Amino acid sequence: MHDKFAQAIADRKASNRHRVLRPVEPVAPGIVRRDGRELLDFSSNDYLGLAHHPELARRAADWGERYGTGARGSRLVTGTLSVHRDIEARVAAFKGMESALLVASGWQANATLIPALMKLVPGAAVLADWLIHASIHHGIAASRTKHHGYRHNDLDHLEDLLSDHGARAPSRIIITESVFSMDGDRADLKRLVAIARKHDALLVVDEAHATGVLGKGGAGLTADLVDKPDIVMGTFSKAFGSFGAYIAASEEICDYLVNAASGFIYTTAPPPPVLGAIDAALDLVPGMDAQRAHLAQLAGRLRAGLDGLGLDTGLSDTQIVPVTIGTEAKTMSISAALEDAGALGVAIRPPTVPEGQSRVRFSLSSAHTTDHVDRVIEVMGKLA
Rank of each mutant, 00 (worst) to 15 (best):
P29N: 11
P29H: 09
P29S: 11
G30P: 09
I31R: 15
I31N: 00
V32E: 06
V32N: 05
V32M: 08
R34K: 14
R34H: 07
R34G: 02
D35I: 01
G36N: 11
G36H: 13
G36A: 11
G36C: 08
G36V: 12
R37N: 14
R37F: 13
R37K: 15
E38C: 01
E38A: 04
E38H: 10
L39P: 09
L39M: 05
L39Y: 10
L40I: 12
L40C: 04
L40W: 11
D41Y: 10
D41V: 03
F42H: 05
F42P: 06
F42G: 07
F42A: 02
S44K: 02
N45P: 01
N45Y: 12
N45R: 03
N45F: 10
D46T: 02
D46F: 06
D46N: 14
D46G: 01
Y47P: 02
Y47N: 13
L48G: 08
L48M: 05
G49Q: 07
G49K: 04
G49V: 07
G49Y: 08
L50E: 07
A51H: 12
H52F: 15
H52N: 13
H52C: 13
H52T: 09
H53C: 05
P54C: 06
P54L: 10
P54Q: 08
E55P: 00
L56F: 09
L56Q: 06
A57E: 09
A57I: 05
R58C: 03
R58Y: 00
R58I: 00
R58Q: 11
R59L: 13
R59Y: 05
A60E: 08
A60Q: 07
A60C: 02
A61L: 12
A61Y: 11
A61F: 04
D62C: 09
W63N: 00
W63V: 00
W63M: 07
W63R: 12
G64T: 04
E65R: 15
E65H: 14
E65W: 09
R66P: 02
R66W: 08
Y67E: 08
Y67P: 00
Y67N: 02
G68D: 00
G68Y: 10
T69V: 14
T69A: 15
T69P: 05
T69Y: 15
G70I: 02
G70F: 13
A71Q: 05
A71D: 04
A71S: 15
A71H: 06
A71C: 09
R72D: 00
R72A: 01
R72G: 01
R72E: 00
R72K: 14
R72M: 00
G73I: 07
G73L: 04
G73N: 07
S74T: 12
S74D: 10
S74M: 09
R75G: 14
L76I: 12
L76W: 09
L76M: 03
L76H: 07
L76P: 01
